[in-house]
Amino acid sequence: MSEHSPYLLEARSLTRSFGRNVALSGLDLRLAPGHIVGLLGPNGSGKTTLMKLACGLIKPTAGEILIDGEKPGPESRSKVAYLPDTSYLNDNMRVSDIVEMYADFYADFDREAAFSLIRDLKVDEKARLSTLSKGTREKVQLVLVMSRRAKLYLLDEPIGGVDPAAREYIINTIIGNYHPESTVLISTHLIYDVEPVLDHVLFLKEGRIVMEGGVDELREQSGKSLDALFREVFRC
């Protein structure tokens, strides 16, 4: 047993470089359970790097990151459900086979919930992945992630490739899945669509957090929407 940490994710001076390129630079961050957090920033600001570090796919160059009080590893992986921004599934498999595989593999996977989401999204469960459109594949991947009962969900651009109607459904799924003991971290540049469901945001710029806070507090202070605030902070 590890010492109990009140934070699901805690980063201290977290730094990661790729060669001479510094993707994250001395990041300090604490995420408590029970929140839906937006990770907002332009391309190349370090969003994906942070997610990969959190699920242990890459290691920090300096500083540290803890998941529920522990370094990312086999133990933490059972607590983290990660949706990468790329396709990682075997194209020859059928949707239903993939769901069954996940149900076998992850102890916290809710098979019934997954099939019900698949049906709601009108995805043909007998279809092979290779025959599905890019957006439909993204839906399948998201269903697989959201059907786990994890503590920390890391969603890297979950709605980028899907149509507005499905986007709405996905956002509803994220709200419906809300649990006071888990936290969802969503990276996106489609701020307008996710704005109402976030309660906390992090603005990332060149590997650093340039603004952080409660969404309603930021709206109140600035009198602006997050979308407008984003455009202001990241004006080119």
């Binding site: 029970g34 929140h35 839906i36 709405e168 956002i171 509803n172 709200i175 419906g176 809300y178 109402p196 469901v197 976030l198 309660d199 969404v215 309603d216």
Partner: peptide, 14 residues
């Protein structure tokens, strides 16, 4: 709270 949040599409904490 959860039902209302889902209906309004807002964060349950809010």
């Amino acid at each position: 709270v959860r039902e209302l949040a889902a209906e309004a599409r807002v964060n349950p904490n809010t």
